[in-house]
Design a protein around this nucleic acid. Structure first.
Lengths: 111, 111
DNA sequence: AGGTTTTTTAACCTAGTGGTTCCATAACCG
DNA sequence: CGGTTATGGAACCACTAGGTTAAAAAACCT
């Protein structure tokens, strides 16, 4: 039934703080405190978000003395994009007016 | 901080039942009972899922006598895919081994 | 060893989610 | 009108999520 790691990935992406963290990591590794700095939120809260991202496979963490640098991992993002890709033809068809055409035909049928 | 409708969209996509419903709707409109049939779950539960999908803008609902046919809406899917698209270059770079090269350089630096 | 920095853990709170069952609504069909 | 079908709503329950504060770990620096 299409379960699996997509659950965790999409759930992780559903939070704006976490998406902002990913955006930040897009431009390179960062430590927990660096990631926490921009947010009006306690640092343990950020740690929780990072754990969610890690369990979803969106980031991985190294060790540098006391610091735990985070880096973006491409795998999960790629899978999520892959799932959405299934629908690309659908929304591009719609953009080309195919669905609108169908709507017109249906309305014509009702009259 | 990149908030907005992406929250609702990704949250809606985080549930396998809802993704299955979207997949089903990909091949055409369907009524609530048709959508509920494949699942070992009460029909009100499906109604709740449909409400989540609707509030996320992923589906819309018409009216056909007692039935409330659901159809897939492309907008939200397109936005979600658009957000992920920002990272496409990142995971494709990784696939090309760019990050692996960086890893090798770093390991060489440690020795 | 003692103190500082960085990060995680624990305990707690509130609110939301995903499911249930039972009932209400709405539109059809005799 | 009365019954049936299709769907939404209300009340409830267990569990999870996102936040807090306070304390514990772990690795550094004299």
């Amino acid at each position: 039934m299409t379960a699996g790691p997509l659950d965790a990935t999409f759930a992780a992406l559903a939070d704006p703080t976490r998406r902002a963290i990913l955006a930040r990591l897009h431009s390179g590794e960062a430590t927990v405190s660096e990631l926490a700095a921009p947010f009006a939120m306690s640092q343990p809260a950020i740690s929780k978000h990072l754990k969610v991202l890690e369990r979803a496979g969106l980031i991985s963490r190294g060790r540098d003395a006391q610091r735990r640098p985070c880096r973006l991992e491409p795998g999960a993002l790629k899978e999520a994009a892959g799932w959405l890709e299934t629908y690309r033809a659908f929304w591009e068809d719609r953009f080309q007016g195919l669905d609108d055409l169908l709507d017109e035909l249906k309305e014509a049928d009702d009259e």
